[in-house]
Design a binder for these strands. Structure first.
Lengths: 214, 214
DNA sequence: TAGATTGTTAATCGATTAACAATC
DNA sequence: TAGATTGTTAATCGATTAACAATC
């Protein structure tokens, strides 16, 4: 039972903690102190303890944290202790890249259908996942569990499909289209704006060049 | 000539401003006030003005901002007013998806080579871009301008390739591997951790479900 | 028990918002 | 000129860091 309000900044750090704990777990490390973890991750030990305590005391004074326990607890907080059903909208390069991401499954993410409007693709399979007609979207959602819909189609169509997804009752959208989606409050959207990410990198590169000149 | 220190938070918002200004430009809008933009973008007008003034006064009292001018100025700040040479490491699904991103070119990003270790891929082309042997990486970099290297290979190899890139003099890495890269201070890294993004979405979905129960 | 390290409070730092004088 | 809207300062808010008592 977590606290009422946890800040966005804290949440955004949880997946990274999870990644490092998974690594430690794979390396057979049993316990870790906030100090050790802080050195690995290049964040302050204080922040780690503060972050984790938003969700309860996972550690033990004088000992530190049990890696497996902390890993599992963060997994629970992130909701990856259960099966999450995904569908992909768009069987293009990016959609295919995501379909092939076998690691997801390990964390409970199962991609169960891909939708496209291209007749040449409909009826084929991408990494064993059937490509369906986008017209069947609503029927499919009515008949199958869908937790997350991933959008990898151009922005104009993305906006229309997002509306259809919302109407069909989907509550989470992973959006790769280069646009913001307007959805009701009870629908979660996570944007992956690759072109913005690249521009950000361009800025950093330029800033470092200018630094050097001085 | 911008100010010495601009906060990370401000920088991370610039690409989104750029996207909205591009949209306005395409729609033939000539001027915009911080108030109007704030309503479109769902941020405060105060924040917009504060953000922009880190880089100089682009507006005009009583009038607002000229869309084209502001668009171009932000483009300059982001370093997309010039040609940026990219190479891709990894010709897998994700690498191909990025290679096919024609929109980049419009913003000065040119993908000029792809590297892979798979003999079946070496010598072929992906969207007109030649796939080269990863062994030729250093030779290629010595002979061609490379501003940004994109990494879309598994993490173990990614760490090794990143070291090679740094040694070869590359100053910016767009990293899609599921790991953090250790690089010198003068090398810029932008991470796109898709699995972390998906976990974040999983959290939001779960949080909304719990909200509803109450 | 003594030592180590957490959980948590208090202090600092930074970022956002509000307000308004400057000015086009 | 009068109205509008910026640029900028001050006030608020939130997040990070430091410190240390609690406790394993």
């Amino acid at each position: 039972m977590e606290e009422v309000k946890v800040s966005k900044a804290v949440i955004s750090r949880l997946p990274r903690y999870y990644r490092y704990l998974e690594e430690l777990l794979n390396n057979g490390v049993e316990r870790i102190s906030s100090q050790e973890l802080s050195e690995m991750m290049h964040v302050t030990a204080s922040q780690i303890r503060q972050d984790l305590n938003h969700f309860g005391g996972f550690g033990q004074q004088g000992y530190g944290y049990r890696v497996e326990n902390l890993h599992d607890e963060i997994g629970k907080i992130l909701g990856i202790d259960r099966i999450t059903h995904l569908i992909l909208i768009g069987a293009g390069n990016l959609g295919q890249a995501l379909a092939n991401y076998t690691n997801y499954r390990r964390r409970g993410f199962c991609i169960e259908a891909i939708f496209d409007k291209d007749p040449a693709k409909i009826g084929t399979e991408v990494y064993k996942i059937p490509v369906r007609d986008i017209n069947e979207l609503e029927t499919y959602i009515a008949e199958h569990p869908v937790d997350i819909a991933t959008i990898t189609i151009p922005k104009e169509q993305a906006v229309l499909v997002a509306d259809r997804l919302v109407k069909a009752g989907v509550k989470a959208i992973w959006n790769f289209a280069h646009t913001d989606l307007a959805v009701p409050e009870d629908v979660a959207v996570e944007n992956v704006h690759l072109s913005e990410s690249l521009m950000h990198l361009s800025y950093k590169l330029k800033a470092r060049e200018e630094e050097k000149k001085r």
